[in-house]
Design a protein around this nucleic acid. Structure first.
Lengths: 232, 232, 232, 232
DNA sequence: GATGAATGAGGATTCATTCAT
DNA sequence: GATGAATGAATCCTCATTCAT
């Protein structure tokens, strides 16, 4: 029971001004992280981006890592929120898939920079990595259940493992969202969403999907495969 | 007439021993990066991991970044090599797809740690990021051509944009390879390769693929879609 | 069993040069502490006093506190060593007392600055405070046993509690040693040792001590005490 | 005619409430210093301990050092006051000695933490160190005069230097008072006062002191010293 | 070549003090 | 007066790089 010399955790601001400064720091932290990356994420840079002196940083955050936690929670929360806030009125499975992919794509687009940084840079911080895993789990779990329901309704290929399929197709969307920003591909959002949805639907053999016609014509084709499936 | 006081660029080692030390440093650098991440990637840690003294590091490399370049080139080279060194004797498109996916999965499995780290950590270093892009381009380009050939042969859905499809499906494999190590999913390699290949094949509507039977039965199903495509 | 990101404890120097630098830093640390006090005891100041750059400080010590530990152990070790290295040939108790007091006085004179600083300044560091207590215990314990032997031999007042008496008289010597440096008293060492020894001897009623004559004449004095024992 | 831009020296509080806040800050400062030491003695910690906001601190004190001065003066004043406020009705020198020691012990017990802290921590602040010296001087001077009077009255050993003796015995009491709190000795106040007084009395050969009988029997003892005066 | 000690710019953090409300 | 947010000089520490042996 030795007296602990703990640094007093910064108290939440009591005044409006304080709250505004604090929020500005979290926002600035996110922007620095997204735009300048890990190495630029210093208290000084963040404070400057927020327009306050770096001493002020420590009025609100215990450390650089403390701010990182707040930034990640903010990004994660926003991402999950944008998924939950779905009207979801349509009844058509394919239309729902399109809508879902569009939201996922957008959400990852905003969040991917920060979340991937965390996925690797904050190797030592298990708590943060956990947040990233939870987000993935949220989406994969939901897609898994969705696929199960489709299979049960006879609307999707019942031979596929629901979880692994959901993981793979979710991975596709996630990685495309990420690649969009680093590659300079010319595809616009609509085109991407369209393709992702069609690929997803065909992959699980969704009944009523756009490319079903091609697939259904399969038996008519008597030709033997003669070209490469892959160019290697 | 002042002589330039340039740092003597480390000469390539002339002796066998020198080459061995140099290779040990590159290998150690890769392992440190893979296992301990960015923050542990210091000349000191790498030298220690290679079993040489700190000073020796600078006998072979100009700087920390110099080593990083060598590590990345080593990883990238190995990855491309493993793809090119394929006998490729089979003629069946699906079998080729399976083989290709297996190799891609394995290659990314090994390389993904380093390449993703580079993708973000070395934001400032254009040369490095270029290497990562080139690797992706290599695979996406190849898959694009493969898909084109299949479409031309009437073996794949011709309505899909070849490049975007290749990008999306390649992304799927890449991201699953990455997720395997961070998530603790119970799937073994064979199962993953099997699913990825089937999903890929169904997605492009490959003739002769395992799940074609399900897809072909589509017209028989008169049912209206009534379940969610996705659980959101 | 999460991987600990522990700072590698600086390895002991392997070369002569390294050992010399390290020793110079410990010595400089002690001098800074003695001459400029707590607030000047910074890695930078110590490094400068030792004639090296402040980066070198961290080649040998983990932190400011790490150096402090070394300094204190060095001071404490030296103090105990100077006490143990005693020829101790005399047989006369009073002569032994004088010799003992002289050594104690000298030892504290050198050590008191550092040890008192630790006694208070390093409030949080229990390990350091323990060292100070051990030193006191060493002296008090020894004096306690010495007094017991004298009492048993009929050479000292048997009514005194040995431990409390040893503590009190040891305290006297310790505090006088300290006061010497802060006050500008004109007393030289011989005079101080002489008085401390006589006071100590008289206090315990040591037979054969210099002031015994006065005490023995007590019964001759029939006068009633009429003056103050203390001026308050 | 530029107006001097001096910091407005905090005015002594005019209102009752103001005085109370100010006193609370001084008291809190003392408590923080005594219980948590130098490193915790910050305006923020003191303000918090006093139950006021950080900013208020500077309403009453120019600086941290300003408060320290007030705290030290408060402690010193209280210590001196407790000595002066002595009825001092007894006539017996030994009884007076006991009473004096009891008061000194108690006073140092309370004051020693702060005064020792000042003795070292405020090495640069001559004014503060002066206060500590003055307190010692007050006690030593008084004891010196008391001893002189006893010697003149033939009640104490005339061979002792009055000042050095007073310093030594005063040091004994002071250091025992300090050691009481840091060591976990089981001695209660009465026992300590009793021993200190008897040691003090015997040391100066005070006529009529409790242990005089032992001392007076000295001539009867013909034995030669044969045991150690000290265990070293 | 190899070694490991030395260097110091740079980054994180603290905290006494000032200032706007 | 009281409040608590804002400030930035000062300090501890890290680590890529250089250098003497």
């Amino acid at each position: 029971m030795g007296r602990q010399r703990t640094k007093p955790a910064p108290t939440p601001p009591t005044t409006t001004r304080g709250r505004r400064t604090r929020d500005a720091l979290i926002l600035a932290g996110r922007e620095v992280l997204e735009q300048q990356g890990w190495s630029a994420f210093s208290p000084e840079a963040v404070a400057q981006a927020a327009g306050v002196s770096y001493g002020t940083f420590y009025t609100y955050f215990e450390s650089r890592d403390d701010l990182l936690h707040h930034v990640v929670r903010s990004v994660a929360g926003e991402m999950l929120a944008s998924s939950l806030a779905s009207p979801d009125v349509v009844d058509d499975p394919y239309a729902k898939l399109v809508e879902s992919n569009r939201r996922y794509l957008r959400a990852w687009d905003r969040a991917s920079k920060v979340l991937r940084l965390v996925d690797q840079g904050a190797a030592a911080d298990e708590a943060l990595r956990q947040i990233v895993l939870e987000i993935r789990e949220f989406y994969v779990g939901r897609a898994t259940k969705g696929l199960k329901r489709l299979q049960d309704a006879g609307l999707a290929n019942p031979d596929l493992d629901t979880r692994l399929t959901a993981l793979a197709l979710g991975s596709m969307v996630e990685q495309v969202a990420h690649a969009r920003s680093s590659m300079e591909e010319p595809f616009d959002e609509d085109m991407i969403v369209d393709h992702l949805s069609r690929l997803w639907a065909s992959a699980i053999g969704l009944r009523g999907a756009p490319d079903e016609a091609w697939a259904a014509r399969a038996d008519a084709s008597g030709g033997t495969a003669s070209a490469d499936a892959d160019g290697n």
